[in-house]
């Protein structure tokens, strides 16, 4: 299959990219890693008139230490994120989840910011950013702004980025002394998650002091399992207690029914997988 015609520009700075996008107007689209966009173009499910390719914007690549947090450049590839020492030291959940995204060749091209801006609730990274209370840094014609991850995902394949805005980076708080796990459930290795669970757990004195849980593919947007988080807080760091708390994982979710799973099955899976993710994150 072959994409329809489009214009193309490859700016080398964020400023250039923002103005190119502004000039392109509504029919312009940002091209990041392209691993989701290229299939859409080839299947002619998308007809942009202009692609603004961010691959040559060097300032968008790499991970920066900002003291209490890391900033991951939007165009940092999955391959780089998985191996990045700062990410592994301070936000290992991101490395764990990114390692499950697609396959090695796709991870060479696909980018952290691209996956988030695509806002696919079946993608693995949106739930992780939601669980970690990350902040999205967007730059547009009106300058830069920060959007909490919980407010970034508006709907299926829709973010709250304004027209003309580009996701330039993601600020992730450092979590010292936490345990992490990403539990991905898919039918074959290549498939999207039927359900995924991103869990971060801080233990103290044999109990769970604090936990964060994000759910993949349990609604039109990634979901924070708040009921589980409060239920698990202060409980014993033992499998039974964690699985008990996990039974609330599906609360308030509206999972889709599709080829890969009906909603009730997804609700059930969310509970089972959340228990497993918590146990793995708590190392019990």
């Amino acid at each position: 299959m072959i994409p329809a015609q489009f214009e193309y520009t490859a700016p080398t700075t964020v400023d250039e990219a923002v103005s190119a996008l502004a000039q392109g107007g509504e029919e312009a689209k940002v091209l990041a890693g392209g691993q989701s966009l290229m299939p859409l173009l080839r299947l002619r499910l998308a007809y942009p008139e202009l692609l603004v390719d961010l691959n040559r914007v060097a300032e968008l690549r790499g991970v920066r230490d900002e003291g209490d947090s890391l900033v991951i450049g939007a165009m940092t590839t999955h391959h780089t994120v998985v191996r990045d020492p700062l990410v592994n030291q301070h936000c290992a959940l991101i490395a764990l989840a990114t390692a499950t995204v697609a396959d090695p060749a796709v991870r060479h091209r696909g980018t952290f910011g691209g996956s988030l801006a695509h806002a696919d609730p079946a993608g693995d990274l949106p739930a992780v950013t939601v669980a970690l209370d990350a902040e999205m840094i967007a730059t547009g014609p009106n300058g830069q702004r920060t959007i909490p991850a919980g407010e970034f995902f508006a709907d299926y394949l829709t973010s709250t980025l304004q027209p003309g805005e580009i996701l330039v980076g993601v600020r992730v708080p450092k979590l010292a002394g936490w345990g992490f796990h990403y539990e991905k459930f898919n039918r074959v290795a290549q498939a999207w998650a039927v359900v995924g669970v991103a869990a971060a757990v801080r233990r103290a004195n044999g109990n769970i002091a604090e936990a964060r849980v994000g759910l993949t593919n349990m609604g039109a947007t990634p979901v924070r399992a708040r009921a589980v988080e409060s239920a698990v807080q202060g409980t014993q760091a033992a499998p039974a207690a964690l699985h008990e708390a996990a039974s609330q994982a599906a609360e308030g979710t509206h999972p889709p029914s599709d080829l890969h799973g009906q909603a009730d099955y997804r609700r059930h899976l969310a509970q089972v997988l959340t228990g497993r993710a918590l146990a793995a994150a708590a190392r019990v």
Binding site: Y8, A10, G34, M38, P39, D53, P104, A105, H108, R109
Partner: peptide, 12 residues
């Protein structure tokens, strides 16, 4: 690095 050449534009 390995890439899938159906998902990269020649211009890239």
């Amino acid at each position: 690095s390995s890439v899938k050449s159906c998902s990269v534009l020649a211009v890239q």
